[in-house]
Simulated assay, not measured.
Amino acid sequence: MTFAPFKSLVPITLLVAAGASAQQPSAPAVPLPATEWTAPALEPFVATYQAFYKGKEAGDATLRVVHSEGAQWRVDMAVRGKRGFASVLGLNLEQSTVFNNEGSVYTPLSQSTVKKALFLGKKVTGVYNWQTGTAQWQGDLKKERQQPIPLQRGDQSALLLNLSLMRDARPGQTLQYRYVDVGRVRQYEYRAADATENVQIGDLSYDALRVYRTNGGNDETVLWIANGVPTPVRILQRKDGEDEIDLRLIEYQGA
């Protein structure tokens, strides 16, 4: 799911073997027919990730999807810094998005971000008002980011973007989304690899599809999605060619 855990949990939005990179595989991949790829279904789950910051273990993260009632769902992400620099700062980040599942579109209804750290804290809440056609945030934000933003069908919050990538990605496909979160609007473009690849995480091995952002400039976002797993098995963010935030799936279970 595009997550930026220590920032705004963008697709993050949401793993290869330790030491592997987000670069294209050296050996040519055999294209996988889209008909042989089955997108993970949206279902309640709780997933636990091991969190790394610049190659060093920094803590853990929990991603949770809950079905409220009818078409309404909620996705939550909590990141806890426990080691190294993140531990010294006491960094903790929680994000949540309430949304409607409309089949081909996940429609955000509300969003919240709470960041706790030594000497600072931040709380921001936002509402996607589809009756007025605007989204607006309030809290610890600059004034210009508290202004109403006109909505478009298909707009995604950071956490929803990860779920949408899980649903939409097919081998070889290009995907485009409009990201509207915390008072900002951005266009995100992603591409799914032509074929799945072996992804080793701890003692487990996954046949996973790599999905990566193509218009992030020096900021790269990569997710690995495996058949039968409702959450990304790895979520990696790289900056200036170096791994920065890396979430690796430890376990998951139905909620």
Rank of each mutant, 00 (worst) to 15 (best):
K7D: 10
S8M: 02
V16G: 12
A18V: 08
A18S: 09
A18C: 04
A18K: 11
A34V: 15
T35F: 09
P40N: 14
P44F: 00
V46E: 13
G55K: 14
E57G: 04
L63Q: 03
E69Q: 13
E69T: 15
M77Y: 06
R83K: 15
F85V: 07
E94L: 00
Q95D: 03
S96N: 06
T97G: 02
G103A: 06
L109V: 06
Q111A: 01
K116D: 10
K123M: 06
G126L: 06
A135Y: 09
G139P: 15
K142N: 07
K142M: 08
E144D: 15
Q147V: 09
I149V: 15
L151C: 11
R153E: 09
S157W: 03
L161P: 04
R170F: 14
D181R: 01
G183W: 01
Q187D: 09
G202V: 12
S205F: 08
Y206S: 07
Y206H: 01
A208T: 04
V211K: 02
N215K: 04
G217F: 07
L223H: 07
I225C: 05
I225Q: 06
V229P: 11
V233T: 09
E242P: 05
I245Y: 14
I245F: 14
L249Y: 11
L249D: 07
Y252M: 03
